[in-house]
Write a protein that binds this DNA or RNA. Structure first.
Lengths: 107, 107
DNA sequence: CTCATATACTTTGTATAACAAGGTATGAGT
DNA sequence: ACTCATACCTTGTTATACAAAGTATATGAG
């Protein structure tokens, strides 16, 4: 049973920035990585991910670059920019604040 | 600095159901309660709350009832229905699953 | 050889949520 | 009188996650 779609809203940016802190990744890899790391709980859809990546790129937090391959289609990797590194930290902190505030009420 | 609006999405239902587990509350009271309990971090707007309450009522999770007052305007209290009690537990569990899954990636 | 599947990126349209901004009305304090 | 806090509500805007579809290549099953 996947998580309600509305719950995910807003969490995606934090999630993507945090993932890319560990180094560049390409879209399809992110989809599978999130799915496996969350044991299927977070089932990120491609129609969600790719627009999100473009959004983050437009915001100047990540930048994409094509990596050619002999076999299969080329991959578009994304890495954090300098501003992206700062945004990742800021947004992670904000996320944790939300969780703390929520827990204060859910307790 | 309040939390980014998009981060809140989906969290509101969980929050409201959890609050009403402690007994009936009226709208304006909820606004102030959330604000104070989260130390201003969660600044719930009335334009957000009232539609949300109507939505939860329509879903059959809460029910509203007017409480007349001699002084001041009448208050519309909301209480959990039987189905609402179940929904509150289910949604709290879902929220905690999301937090756990996110932490697995943010760590 | 053909077909299905997995990989890999993309776009269009839909549902819905949070909010800004406004409205209505009452009672208390200055 | 006027402002403020209380108390409820609605309309319009913006943004997001997703379904559904499309494009293209490589691989394996039949």
């Amino acid at each position: 049973m996947p998580i309600d779609r509305e719950l995910m809203k807003g969490s995606l940016d934090v999630l993507l920035l945090a993932l890319l802190e560990n180094g560049p990744m390409y879209g399809y890899q992110i989809v599978k990585e999130v799915r496996s790391r969350s044991e299927g709980l977070l089932d990120l859809k491609e129609g969600t991910l790719y627009p999100a990546l473009h959004r983050l790129e437009k915001a100047g937090w990540i930048e994409g670059f094509w990596q050619a391959r002999a076999d299969g289609a080329d991959r578009r990797y994304y890495r954090l920019t300098a501003r992206g590194v700062a945004a990742a930290q800021q947004k992670r902190a904000e996320w944790r604040q939300l969780v703390a505030a929520m827990e204060g009420i859910l307790r």
